[in-house]
Design a protein around this nucleic acid. Sequence first.
DNA 1: TCTTAAATGTAAACACTGTTTACTTTATAT
DNA 2: ATATAAAGTAAACAGTGTTTACATTTAAGA
Lengths: 218, 218
Amino acid sequence: MIKNEYHHGNLKEEFLKIAFNFIAKEDIDKLTLKVLSDATGTSRSAIYKHFKSKDALIEKIIEDGFEQFDNSTSPILKDKDKPLIDRFYFTGKEYIKFAKENPNLYRLLFGKKYAYIREKIISIQDEDCSGFGALKLAIQEGQESGILKNDDSYKQAIIIWSSLHGLSSLIIDGFMDVAELYEKLYDDMFKTLLAGIIANKVKLLSSLPFGDKLLKVK
Amino acid sequence: MIKNEYHHGNLKEEFLKIAFNFIAKEDIDKLTLKVLSDATGTSRSAIYKHFKSKDALIEKIIEDGFEQFDNSTSPILKDKDKPLIDRFYFTGKEYIKFAKENPNLYRLLFGKKYAYIREKIISIQDEDCSGFGALKLAIQEGQESGILKNDDSYKQAIIIWSSLHGLSSLIIDGFMDVAELYEKLYDDMFKTLLAGIIANKVKLLSSLPFGDKLLKVK
DNA sequence: TCTTAAATGTAAACACTGTTTACTTTATAT
DNA sequence: ATATAAAGTAAACAGTGTTTACATTTAAGA
């Protein structure tokens, strides 16, 4: 595909790339069509040949963003070679790391404004057992092996997700000086959370990160 | 103070009142100066005689909003006639209720955009022991009476706040169908959380809401 | 009470925003 | 080679927050 001065070639992909790079540094509502047109050397209305609206471009960013988020977290949770508790621990840590490194993207993925896209994606994840679906599956795995309490896995998954989301939000939305001591906070939160969903007959030893030897059956 | 057609009387207060009523129903970024001027029968630029900018009006809303939030939650936490665990339980419940009933205001108070105002307010609350300061104080009270683990009260407060914020966000930002089963979720989360910060020598009985009789010293 | 100054309003313009329209240029397929 | 589709532009539109110059009313002092 040869490009000349007039036609750009693959403007659509470039718009997305520029938008991604932009929210790596600035908030999404600072992103204007002028930013995109200036960066590509096109006119402000060029985008409408590739996206129905500015929102449509953002929706695509969100879809790609969820894929990126899932690629960062789910593999850790699914790695059956490692002990389950370790997998929970490191997945949660990666969750927070992702939020910390991509705050603007994270807010986009888990904020109110585009909840309808998240809704759609989560229902897909429920089917192919990625993302939130993977978390529920991992909890079920823990219940079946007797490590976790037999309870509603959906409810347990939400409590875990809720805690991670809460801590991540505190970190990236500038609550006090949380960002500095967040690692200790996470370890504490994890212990607390784990104590709540772990089976009664299983005792948790103190060291972190955990290993399979650190779980003791009473 | 007599009003005629030209001068309004107390336009500043009315702007705030209208803005408050507006975010009770719609998101803050739907609030335009035209909405305010139409509702008061004034011109779009009238607001600049009372506020430096649109943002300055929003900042005032946030300050008032925090006062409102504090009035809803802190009194429950400070009521020393009731057992401490009950106070934690019902304060948390009120926290979530506030978020549920005022989602747009809650997002304004705890979102990223106006974090600098929250920062300012929290430092005030630290001094007069309202809001976040009240939470830390209540935790210290629990530690001194031997009910709670002797740990960094600041860290414990953040973990609690983080959990409440996470669950509230899930509810109001449209995460799945959390809104329906949030009461059960809250009870579960509270138990889990409490198990994490409660002193080892204290055993927690199962019923909710708790009472002082439900705490048993081993 | 008359005059003056301050407070509080308006209208018009400004530079932005996202979006639509009509038009132009280039690429592609028959 | 030519018709058609794809992909760009420029100009206009309504909307945004904000500033400027001006008008009206209120309040205060002599």
